[in-house]
Design a protein around this nucleic acid. Structure first.
Lengths: 139, 139
DNA sequence: TGTTTGAATGTAATAATTACAATTTAGTAA
DNA sequence: TTACTAAATTGTAATTATTACATTCAAACA
């Protein structure tokens, strides 16, 4: 349901200029699951020939800074990006390097209550991210 | 309490040869908190002149493969290593790029119970890692 | 339509990590 | 102790991901 119009309004809401590059990068972010910068570059290049790698990184930086996307990292080696900014966790399988989103409001509630009772001393929590390591049992 | 003897026995238990490089790298891992490969290289170089960067990476790989240490990643950009293999979580402050261990058996119990009741479908969990994002309020 | 400011581009640099061939060393057994 | 073998270390060079920066271009708005 994230169409071009929605993307444009997200960008303008943040006072960002609308460019074909930005729209295409954002579309790629929505289409892929946890893409790397390289995934995005390759995809957007189809639509925008002459696209520069630097542009992709610039746009990703801008989107992260404006909290439209988030950076995600796993034990694998490259940075990944996530267009879904609503709170969620990640399932990650090291052997296949595959990563999926995991939503669990019940768990979030549980964590919230736990950390209300018991705060790590000297640390203010702003976000809790779970990484569930394991294996995908079926495709 | 992790002295040289202990390190040696950990290595031999896994059938690994004892070398000065391995011992020194392991010692650095214990001494530092979540060091990068570079941190370790610089430290070990003091003890072992002529040390190669490749050796550090080789040793780290070997230790990870043998589950004597773990890889840790954050939103920041470099791989970090952790000599503490017993289960724990991480507090991470993005602005200072500082990271600390966090132990909370009560939380672990909570999570264990939660995921016993409710398993993410098509995924077998082998490890749960929490990354608590936020700010260190005091030094 | 013109102007301004922010965005995209290209090139080149840097930083982290890996590949690989050659040399050296730890562990073992004669 | 010596010799052997497999494993570990080293050095060099390549690769990959990312960033810096100067120049060119284009979106937004008067």
């Amino acid at each position: 349901m994230t169409d071009t119009k929605e993307i444009i309004s997200k960008l303008t809401d943040k006072g960002l200029k609308i460019t074909p590059q930005r729209i295409a990068v954002y579309e790629a972010l929505v289409e892929f699951y946890h893409p790397t910068a390289d995934d995005i570059y390759k995809k957007v290049l189809e639509k925008i020939p002459g696209l520069s790698y630097t542009t992709v990184y610039n746009i990703l930086d801008t989107l992260v800074t404006n909290k439209l996307i988030t950076r995600v990292k796993t034990d694998a080696d490259v940075m990944r990006y996530d267009a879904i900014t609503e709170h969620h966790h990640h399932l990650y399988c090291a052997s296949s390097d595959r990563m999926e989103d995991y939503y669990d409001p019940e768990l979030d509630q549980l964590l919230k209550e736990h950390f209300k009772r018991k705060q790590p001393c000297g640390f203010t929590i702003t976000d809790i991210r779970l990484q569930l390591m394991g294996d995908f049992t079926k495709e």
